[in-house]
Amino acid sequence: MFKFNLQSERKRIGILGGTFDPPTISHIDIAKESLLQQVVDEVWVGFIYQNQTEDQLIFIFIQIVPCGLRTDKQTQTEPKHRLEMVKIAAQELIEQNKSLEGKLITNDIEVKNNRTIPTYPLMKRFEKEYPEFDFYFLMGYDLIKGLLSWDEGQSLVEEIKFIIAGQPNLEWKQFDDYFPKNYKLIKIYQNVRSTNYRKTIVDSYKQNNNTFAADLGLEAGLLSQNIINYIIQNNLYVQQN
């Protein structure tokens, strides 16, 4: 494994992107453990959503990144709801870890753009606009095998530094042929994968006579109770199916 310098005097910024529809405990755990394990000094967390002709990117931590139309992954929830859920997740993290006070700030910006900004040019843009910082892309282990298929995948795996999160008992050797050139592994304690959780919510709702189950029918520990409560109170996901 290539080990890049994590003791740099330059501020280290972890970039965690996603749709966060909704934000799971696993998403937050990657950000939290990157900070608590002192792999990075800050995490900028953002997601893309579509709002007619305007796209918005939400960031925990003050910084703002322009983004374009998301064509590879459809979002399901109105921007205002996903922003509110990100705020809830950030506040929960602060309450659980007072040492992170002042590092979790929600901010949003509307950016007009008619195209996606893929990970590689986005990270290069960060490097150009903030040359005083070192940037690392945070991701769950389950995305490793597909990295080369991302836009400019070869450049991505050769030039960008990664922090890859997985559970302590994960068998990492199965990913040996897929790791990028520069990476650091960190342990997290929640399940990274959250596939089909929106479908699970809808199926549970229908099976429960069109009412929400108290746990939304999801696996325990996937979403925080405050996020679950917000989904129920605002009748999210079930109206879209």
Rank of each mutant, 00 (worst) to 15 (best):
Q174E: 11
Y141W: 09
K128G: 02
L93R: 09
Q38G: 08
I188N: 13
K161T: 00
N229D: 14
E9P: 06
S26R: 08
I160M: 07
N113G: 11
F179V: 10
Q96P: 00
Q225A: 07
Q56K: 15
K87E: 06
L93D: 03
F179Y: 15
Y178G: 06
A89E: 04
K161S: 05
T71C: 02
F59K: 04
S8T: 15
L143P: 04
N191P: 06
E9K: 14
K145G: 04
R115Q: 13
I186V: 14
N241L: 07
I48V: 15
S8G: 07
I144E: 02
R10M: 00
N226I: 01
V192T: 08
F126P: 01
Y130D: 06
I160N: 07
Q76Y: 12
D29M: 08
Q91V: 00
R193A: 14
Q56C: 13
Q63V: 04
Q7E: 13
K80G: 00
C67G: 15
L148H: 14
P22Y: 00
Y230E: 06
I164R: 13
M123V: 12
T211S: 14
S34G: 06
V157F: 10
L185G: 06
R193T: 15
G17L: 00
G221K: 09
E9R: 10
P22Q: 01
T53L: 04
G17V: 00
P168F: 09
D177V: 01
K11R: 01
V40I: 09
I88R: 04
Q76I: 05
P131A: 11
R115C: 07
R198Y: 00
G18T: 13
L16G: 10
I201V: 15
I64Y: 02
G221A: 11
F133G: 01
I227F: 02
I163S: 13
D41W: 01
E110H: 11
A213P: 02
K11G: 00
L223Y: 02
L156M: 09
K32V: 07
S99C: 05
L35R: 08
T106P: 10
N229H: 03
K32H: 02
L216E: 05
G146H: 01
I164W: 11
I60R: 13
L57T: 15
L104F: 10
G221M: 06
A90L: 05
F4I: 11
L35C: 06
N191Q: 15
D151A: 13
F126W: 08
F61H: 14
S194E: 01
E132M: 10
S8E: 05
Y205P: 03
A165D: 06
N235T: 06
N235A: 02
Q190M: 08
N241V: 09
E152Q: 15
L185V: 12
E129L: 14
Y120C: 02
P131M: 07
D177A: 15
I109W: 08
I163Y: 11
D21W: 05
M85T: 14
V45Q: 12
Q239K: 15
G14K: 12
